[in-house]
Amino acid sequence: MTHYGGLEFPTLCPYLYYEDTAKAMEFLERAFGFRERLVSKDDDGTLRHVEMERGGGVVMMGSPSDHKSPKRLGQVTVGIYIHVDDVDKLYEQAKEAGADLDGAPADQAYGVRSFGARDLEGHQWWFAQPLSGSSS
């Protein structure tokens, strides 16, 4: 972990680009259980930088000018993999929120129960719970 400016950061923080960061924030909270922790805005109200967290993980988010989402490009080039404590419950939450799901949670040979989903702009996510118990 790294600590500065009053906040704690995991060593690795994915920075996700969205065409509409405000909508993405709302979706990540409702579908995937993230919580807002930092927002900064310009004086015209434009979102400049966002950080959301889940279980000690942090994603940074923003909207570069002329950015095109994976959904618009028709191509996903990276995926975000997160360990969680209750993958079946989260699956139901994501389903209820209208996430684009790859399928129901399934036990994997490498020791997790997981499912994949894409967010509203097409970014790929995977959520995995160790079959041996807690993710922490």
Partner: peptide, 11 residues
Amino acid sequence: QPALVRVTVYV
């Protein structure tokens, strides 16, 4: 610098 900074914690 941004005009607004918002930080959220849970207690």
